[in-house]
Each structure stands twice: as structure tokens, then as C-alpha cells.
Design a protein around this nucleic acid. Structure first.
Lengths: 152, 152
DNA sequence: CCTGAAAGTGGGAGGCC
DNA sequence: GGCCTCCCACTTTCAGG
């Protein structure tokens, strides 16, 4: 389904999608047109989901990354759906996973600072009932955070 | 530093950076040229870090997202630097944070499946010594995972 | 003086064969 | 994979607040 050139193109594009077709074509030893056709195909197949600009947390006053670990007693569908829809709607939430292990859910949350996080936390517990255990831990240091999937 | 139009442009671009200047200009009630100048300025200032293509985990056989929670006894600089450089070099690691709370570090790891994760885990503990406690938890469900920062 | 608008040009994307 | 067309990024110049 994906040959070597496809993977090379994806690898390049997931680091910099502002590269022009010519540059991409040269990098994979192709002429511009077939290169363009491959990329078009990868978009149609859904391998390429979209192209986005990455912004600086610091420059936008969003320096605090927090992880929220949640346990719950509630295991019925209705509660689940309302919980999911509430959390999905909160723009501070960049990641939201149902997980195995000690906790049931994990959130990755981005705010300005502790005060901002406190606001988020209060909003969360106000909007969602039946959260029996909510633990927060904060990123002291953001050592690596990338969007590029490992393609080898 | 950033006015309303800047924020609107950032908001649009962090969802779709393939929009052309004309479309962006219309959306914020500007003509193409000043719109283009603003975006250029935001790039120079480092507010816009880059433009990347987002790829489908599923289509690329990377359906397993795991979180690795790590405690360590080692708190000297040398160990820290070697630990950081080893983990940074592992392409499966999309997120790597030093955290407050019960654990010292947290990793977000993407692999094909449990077998792939096992390979990653073995590689990790082989390359890094002095990990006293390594707990894995797996994402059963990826409910929300976005790259867009909250700009309001 | 700074910020937005108008006009022109070179180049690359996107469709043909 | 080559050709051709059209549109868009980018520059310069001008106008307004």
C-alpha cells in the first residue's frame, strides 16, 4: 500500500509541510508531477489527515502543561457520554484518553499558569459529577513533544 | 503584542495551514497584503513555530498509544543527561516530560501493538540504567487528541 | 509614522496529454 | 514524465488615519 517513496514523502511532510513540490520531488528522486500525484493520493486515502501550524506555548502565555488522572465509580453509558462531551468541549484539553491501569482516564491540559489550571479544574469538577478521584501532575520540564509519527 | 486579528489568523492556521492568503484575509476582514505581512511577522517572532502534516496512526499501523510513568533513584546530572539523550533519540516517543507528583517522568509512546510496545520497553530498560519503577498504561480509546492551543 | 490597500510579476500548483 | 495555464505568494508603491 505504501512504498518507500511514499514513506519518504510522509516523513518530510510531517516535519515541514511548507516544502514545495519541487523540493519534495528532488528529495525522493521524482519529477514534480508524479510527486504531486502521490501526495494527493495520500490525502485522499486519509494517510495525511491535515496540515496545521504549530504555535509556541510560551509566546501565547500557555506555559503550564498538566496531566489529569481520573478515577470514577460511574460506569454506565449515560454518564460516559456526558463526561466525554463535556471534556471534549474544553479547549484547554489537548489530549483525552481512556486508559488501562490504576486510573480510568487521562487528560493533557494546557493553561497559562497554576491560577489558570485552578480555573480549569474548578470548571471540570463543576461540569462533571461522580469523579471519585482526580489527581493532577504538572510538567516541570517539556523535554520532548513532537507530532511526528515514527515511520521506520 | 497580539491583537484580535492576529489571534484569529493563528486560530485559523492552527486548524488548517493550507488556506491561501486570500481566504485568510477575507476571514479577518483584511486585504491579502497586510494579512500576509501579519503572518510573516508571526513567523519571525516565533509565535508560529512551523507547519506540519498530521498523519493517521491507524493507516500507518501505529494504533497503540502508551503512557510510561517512571520513577528513579538517580538524581545526578550525568544520569539525567544520558537518560534524556537516550529517550529523545527514540522515535516512538512523542512526548517526554519531567513531572511533579508520584512519578518523576512521563512518556507518551506510539507503537503498532503490544508486541511493538514490548520491543520499545526492552530497548528502553536496556539503554537506561537505574530506573527503579516503570509503569505502563495503555490508551484503550483515543477520545481527543489535538495540536491546537486554546487561544481565547 | 504605522498599517492597510492597489497593482504588477515571477513561480509553482494543478490539470492536460 | 513533459507541457501549459492559471492562480497565488511576494514585492513595490501608494494612500489613509
Amino acid at each position: 500500500m505504501l512504498d518507500r517513496k511514499d514513506r519518504e514523502l510522509l516523513q518530510l511532510l510531517q516535519w515541514d509541510c511548507s516544502l514545495c513540490i519541487q523540493e519534495l520531488a528532488e528529495a525522493v528522486n521524482l519529477t514534480p508531477n508524479p510527486c504531486w500525484k502521490r501526495i494527493k493520493r495520500l490525502e485522499e486515502e486519509g494517510v495525511i489527515i491535515g496540515r496545521v501550524a504549530l504555535l509556541s506555548k510560551e509566546k501565547l502565555n500557555l506555559s503550564l502543561t498538566a496531566f489529569v488522572l481520573i478515577k470514577t465509580q460511574q460506569h454506565n453509558h449515560e454518564w460516559y457520554h456526558s463526561f466525554v462531551s463535556v471534556v471534549k468541549d474544553m479547549p484547554e484539553v489537548l489530549g483525552f484518553y481512556r486508559t488501562t491501569g490504576e486510573y480510568d482516564y487521562m487528560l493533557k491540559v494546557v493553561t497559562s499558569d497554576i491560577k489558570g489550571y485552578d480555573g480549569f479544574y474548578k470548571k471540570l469538577v463543576r461540569r462533571v459529577s461522580g469523579l471519585s478521584d482526580v489527581t493532577s501532575c504538572f510538567a516541570m520540564e517539556d523535554i520532548k513533544s513532537i507530532t511526528q509519527l515514527p515511520l521506520r
